[in-house]
Design a binder for these strands. Structure first.
Lengths: 238, 238
DNA sequence: CGCCGCATTGACGTTCGTCAAGTCTAGTGG
DNA sequence: CCACTAGACTTGACGAACGTCAATGCGGCG
C-alpha cells in the first residue's frame, strides 16, 4: 500500500520491455509481480555478491552498471562482463549454491532481488516465465561464446572495436545515443575484459582517434565513423 | 517392448550418475524416462547440429566426443568446447530458437535426443529435474568463465596445462585413467580452443616432453608429473 | 590547493604467429 | 600385402603484436 510496495512491481516497472517480464501477457505479468522480494542499493565499488558467497537470488539491474569478475587461485582476475539496466546477474551461483564470481558496481546502482526459489516456483506455473528464464541463461551462454571468439582469435583493434560497438548498441536499446557513450569502467577493466593490458587499450583508443574513428575525452567517447569501426571487426569478405 | 525401447530409458542407463538423472530419486527417475525421444548416431566429422539450424532438442552424449565451434562473419572460427559422455549440448539454441554454433563429432558417437518442449513440460512437474536443468546451464556459464580467464590472462604453457588437467579429470570421472589419455582432437582444434596456433600447441607439448612432464606419442598422452603440470597452471602463491 | 588515481606515451623485451621445410602415420587402392 | 598419398605433426628462422617498465600529464575530490 505504501508507495514503496507499489514501486516494487514488475508490471509497472519502466524496464519491463527489457527485463524479466519481456514477452509476458498482462495476466502473466501480474502473476510475477511478487518475484521481486526487495530492492537493494549498491554503492560504487561495493559488491552485490562475491565469490564463495551463498547463492540465494538472481538480481535484475534497475540502475547503474556492474562488472563481474572471476579470480584464479594465484590471484589473476578476469572481467567476465559488464551489465546494465534490465540485465540479470547471479546465474553463476545456481550450480553449486555458491557464487563463483564477484559483481561490483561501477557506479551507484539499484537492483531487484529475486529469490531463486521463488523464480523456480513461479516458473513451474507460468510457462512463459519458465521459457524466459531458460532464454536468459542461454543468452548468457551465447554471449560468452562471442567473448571466447573475441579472446581467442581477434587482435587488439578488433577486440576494442567490437567492445565499443556492443556497448553503444546496448545503450541505444536503452534509449541512449547511438554514437556517444560514457565508459563507466577504467582502461584496466576494459583491458581485463578484452584480454589486453591497459596500455594497449589506451594506445588502441589513441589510434582510433588518429584515424578519425572516434573522439575520446577521458571516459566520454563519441563514435565518429561507425562504419569504419564495423569494418575493423568484420573485415570485408575476401 | 523391443530391446530398443527398453534401452532408451534414463533409469537403466549406465550414464545416469553423470547425465540428466543426477540427484534424482528413483520415483523421479522413472518419470523422466520418456525425456529421450530417440537416439541418434553421428559419424566422425558429421555435425549433430549446425549454426542457423532450428532448435528443437537438447542432446545428451552417450558415446563419443564432440567439439562445438562458433564462426564469425568473416569466417574465423573458435572451438568453444569439447564434450564427452554424459554432457549436454545444444543449450545455445534456446534463446533464438536457432542454434548459434556447430556441434561436430570427433569420433563416431551416439546421443540421446531430448525434445526441449518435453524437458520444459516435465520440469514443471518434477522439481528436481527443473533444478537440474538450471544447474546444467549454470555449470556451462561457469565453465565459460573459466575459459575466459584462460584466454584472457594465461600464457601458452598455462593454457595447455590447464587443458590437459581438465581433460584427464573429466575422463577420470568416467572411469578412465588419471594419467593417460587419448586426444580425440587435432593440434589445430586444441589451438583454436586455447586461442593458440597449432604450431604453438605442438611446441609447447614438446617442451612438456623435454621437461619430463608428459610423454606424447601422437594423440596418446601420458601425464608423468601431474604436480608439475598443476604448478604451471597455478604458480605457487607469492 | 594539493593529492591520488587514472590515463597517455615512449623505449624496449617477450611471446607467440607466420612461413617454410620436412617427417610421420593412417587410410586407400592396386 | 604393400605402395602411395593426404592429412597431421614437428621443428626452425624470423617478424609482428602486445606486454613491461618508466616517466609524465591530467582531472576530480577532499
Amino acid at each position: 500500500m505504501t508507495p514503496e510496495t507499489i514501486k516494487v512491481a514488475c508490471s509497472n516497472c519502466n524496464l519491463r520491455e527489457l527485463c524479466m517480464p519481456v514477452g509476458l501477457q498482462p495476466a502473466e505479468l501480474r502473476r510475477i509481480d511478487d518475484l521481486v522480494a526487495t530492492r537493494r542499493k549498491v554503492k560504487r565499488r561495493d559488491t552485490l555478491f562475491h565469490n564463495g558467497e551463498r547463492f540465494t537470488s538472481l538480481y535484475a539491474i534497475r540502475t547503474g552498471v556492474f562488472k563481474t569478475r572471476v579470480t584464479s587461485e594465484d590471484g589473476r582476475d578476469q572481467v567476465t562482463g559488464f551489465q546494465m539496466a534490465g540485465e540479470i546477474i547471479g546465474l553463476d551461483g545456481i550450480v553449486n549454491d555458491r557464487h563463483t564470481c564477484d559483481a561490483v558496481a561501477l557506479e551507484d546502482a539499484e537492483v531487484c532481488v529475486m529469490p531463486f526459489e521463488r523464480i523456480e516456483e513461479l516458473s513451474r506455473e507460468v510457462t512463459a516465465l519458465q521459457r524466459h528464464v531458460h532464454q536468459i541463461m542461454s543468452r548468457e551462454i551465447v554471449r560468452e561464446h562471442g567473448v571466447m571468439l573475441l579472446l581467442g582469435s581477434m587482435r587488439a583493434e578488433e577486440r576494442l572495436a567490437a567492445f565499443l560497438l556492443n556497448l553503444v548498441q546496448r545503450l541505444h536499446a536503452r534509449g541512449f545515443s547511438q554514437s556517444e557513450l560514457v565508459l563507466r569502467m577504467t582502461r584496466e577493466e576494459i583491458g581485463s575484459y578484452l584480454g589486453l593490458k591497459l596500455e594497449t587499450v589506451s594506445r588502441t583508443l589513441s589510434k582510433f582517434v588518429e584515424d578519425g574513428i572516434v573522439a575520446v575525452q577521458q571516459r566520454h567517447v563519441r563514435i565518429a565513423d561507425a562504419d569504419k569501426l564495423r569494418r575493423i571487426v568484420n573485415p570485408p569478405a575476401c
